[in-house]
């Protein structure tokens, strides 16, 4: 610890010495203001659209990066949509849910009683996971998920197929708008900090490390399937 303090002090001394030598002056007021107000800069026009168009843009951008998207009218359609997808892709009828009540309380027994449901973090044995996205960013078709009691991070990476429910009302235009929502949620909960992990996910896992050929499913999911739900009913 003492050694660390010595290194720390010397590094800061070196920074300040270099700045002084080069005539670089700190601006503490500007720093405080920036940290307190965290202003947004230039937002590309692409995503600044009417809601319906933003939803279409999200779908288009997500599909451009090999995610698949299915549109549903309400949450009640989720079990059947999950069942269809599993059948279509020849996947086992076993899904690990994130623990979010929105998923657990769905009428699974009515439309998808053959699917065995598990809940919680993944230890690497789950082929399919189903989670709820906190937000969708239309600009690049990006999902935003975060850790918490009902959001195991492992479900986003270990299973080969990652299914995500996204409410259309949770789709925003730009990254900055998603951050504004996270800030608000944390403030409402009385949380001083961000969740431990915030995952921005844009399409399934890929690599170009073998002769620059883009291949899906490098270490994370081979497939990202987004269930886009129109209303909150």
């Amino acid at each position: 610890m003492e050694k660390n303090m010595e290194a720390r002090n010397q590094i800061f001394a070196s920074i300040r010495r270099s700045k002084e030598r080069g005539g670089v002056k700190s601006d503490p007021k500007a720093v405080e203001k920036r940290l307190a107000e965290h202003p947004s800069g230039l937002i590309p026009k692409r995503s600044q659209l009417e809601k319906a168009e933003q939803v279409n843009l999200f779908q288009k951008m997500a599909e451009n990066v090999q995610a698949s998207v299915v549109r549903l009218k309400s949450d009640r359609e989720i079990p059947a949509a999950v069942s269809d997808y599993l059948a279509q892709k020849n996947l086992p009828a076993r899904v690990k849910l994130s623990g979010d009540e929105r998923l657990s309380n769905l009428p699974w027994s009515e439309n998808a009683s053959h699917i065995s449901l598990l809940e919680g973090a993944s230890g690497g044995d789950d082929l399919v996971s189903l989670a709820v996205s906190f937000a969708g960013i239309a600009e690049t078709g990006t999902l935003v998920l975060h850790s918490g009691p009902k959001g195991p991070t492992t479900l986003n990476f270990l299973p080969e197929t990652h299914m995500v429910v996204l409410r259309e009302s949770d789709i925003v235009g730009a990254y900055e708008e998603a951050w504004a929502r996270i800030r608000k949620q944390q403030a409402d909960k009385g949380e001083e900090f961000l969740p431990r992990t915030v995952n921005m996910i844009t399409g399934p896992s890929r690599t170009g490390d073998i002769e620059q050929t883009i291949l899906l499913g490098a270490h994370g999911p081979h497939a990202l399937h987004i269930l886009m739900v129109a209303d909150d009913a």
Binding site: V65, E139, T140, S147, G148, T153, R196, N199, T202
Partner: peptide, 20 residues
Amino acid sequence: EFTSYTTFSSGPRREEDPDG
């Protein structure tokens, strides 16, 4: 346009987190 995974980590897992 954006990389597949952009991940923001703040501190260790929270008490109620199921993983991390």
